[in-house]
């Protein structure tokens, strides 16, 4: 109880480092606290709030982003690990008002209810969408197994990802 609910960070020493990194194609050079997580940096410093804080413990996937193309829980990535990295968030998917096929598929298949998990699911599905493979339903589910949806819109989420893959194949 105490360990979870009370502070683990009392001293506010000079723990700040200037760090360079790229988010959605744009380079940033920011003075950030080494103990900040990528999620805090995105939300508090860059005001990119698409990635959500559902647990801050790497258990729910609501904060999923891409780090050099790999799916990560941004709440589990400390500032030191983003130096010179290429980060992509849900805000970086659509281009010039055009929705990414995954975003379009989530709209057309009603892939979100309350929507709090939706950016995380879309980012978790992104590498699957980019890959050359033609995944089975089971593979789609496996790639999304780290993301929770408490509305349990899982059926529509599976439909959405499958639909996005279908659009891609037909293009």
């Amino acid at each position: 109880m105490d360990s979870h609910l009370t502070s683990d960070r009392v001293d506010m020493d000079d723990n700040e480092t200037t760090t360079k990194f790229i988010v959605n194609g744009r380079e940033h050079s920011l003075k950030i606290d080494n103990r900040d997580t990528l999620l805090d940096i995105l939300r508090d410093h860059l005001r990119l709030t698409g990635a959500k804080k559902g647990c801050d413990l790497g258990e729910c996937g609501a904060c999923t982003v891409l780090l050099d193309g790999k799916v990560v829980n941004s709440c589990q990535i400390l500032a030191a690990r983003i130096k010179d990295k290429d980060i992509r968030t849900v805000e970086g998917l659509s281009q010039n008002e055009t929705l990414h096929p995954l975003q379009l598929a989530f709209i057309e298949n009603d892939g979100g209810q309350c929507g709090y998990c939706t950016p995380g699911f879309i980012m978790a599905a992104y590498p699957l969408f980019e890959s050359e493979e033609e995944p089975s339903t089971e593979e789609i589910k496996l790639s999304l197994a780290g993301n929770l949806c408490r509305c349990n819109a899982y059926g529509s989420i599976i439909d959405s990802v499958a639909y996005a893959l279908e659009i891609k194949t037909n293009e």
Binding site: T49, K52, V90, E91, L93, D110, G115, P119
Partner: peptide, 23 residues
């Protein structure tokens, strides 16, 4: 008809604002 949910676009874009997103 299955008219598309009116508030879904902001949710897939990441622009829908939840309480914690407001500063």
């Amino acid at each position: 008809t299955s008219y598309i949910r009116t508030d879904l676009e902001g949710k897939v874009l990441g622009t829908a604002e939840y309480t914690a997103d407001i500063a």
